[in-house]
Write a protein that binds this DNA or RNA. Sequence first.
DNA 1: ACTATATTCAACCTAACGGTTGACTTTATG
DNA 2: CATAAAGTCAACCGTTAGGTTGAATATAGT
Lengths: 114, 114
Amino acid sequence: MVEYSNDIILTETLKSMSDVTRRSLLTRLCQEGPCRVTDLASYYDMSLNAISKHIKVLERCELITRKTIGRTHWIEADLARIRVVEIWFSELKSIWELRLEKLTELMENGDKND
Amino acid sequence: MVEYSNDIILTETLKSMSDVTRRSLLTRLCQEGPCRVTDLASYYDMSLNAISKHIKVLERCELITRKTIGRTHWIEADLARIRVVEIWFSELKSIWELRLEKLTELMENGDKND
DNA sequence: ACTATATTCAACCTAACGGTTGACTTTATG
DNA sequence: CATAAAGTCAACCGTTAGGTTGAATATAGT
């Protein structure tokens, strides 16, 4: 993922986080710090390949980073991208609030004109 | 969606929000307040049925509510479910912080034992 | 050099997703 | 009453997602 629009980042980030295995991986990485792919896979009842693919998905949207040393890949969580989602949430809320403010304002003016 | 586990709620909510059309619908509903399905659909370059399905998805995970009056359905945003996601974010962050704290603590003790 | 380990790549399968169209139900309206 | 309007339901279709297995690649250890 290289310099995409905010909408695409939101889409990819939310989609990544919408899978329970990937959320679990993220949690584990936050708890344990950097982990190897095989170690991560050992916790789950699915193939190493499946986990490898999940990690690639998380990596594509920059929710994790990878540092390759020799044959082992060290995977680490990166929570920065969560900010993008949080910002969207707060924008949504302020849009909501703004409407309510205008609404009450309108009702007060309405009272005066009665 | 009736009394599901938090994990399922997270999955469904994040998946719902990961679609650009549904995010747009949510935004519009926050701006405009309650809207009819047809009105919402008029903004998008896709069939009424597609929008109807998107609305159903948002409704299933309670990001919107529906009030049916006669033949018209009034759709309204409901941002409460966003809290569930925000809480997961903050949990993730504190798990991360906790590990860092333990890590620095360990390093300080390590210095003493040198 | 041989073998084991760490990981990805590629092909495949099934289920789910996002969209379409056409028919149907219910409610308003001339 | 006939017809238009508001929506949903159902069936279909191409694409994507999440999983599998088997092979390939690259690095480490003996």
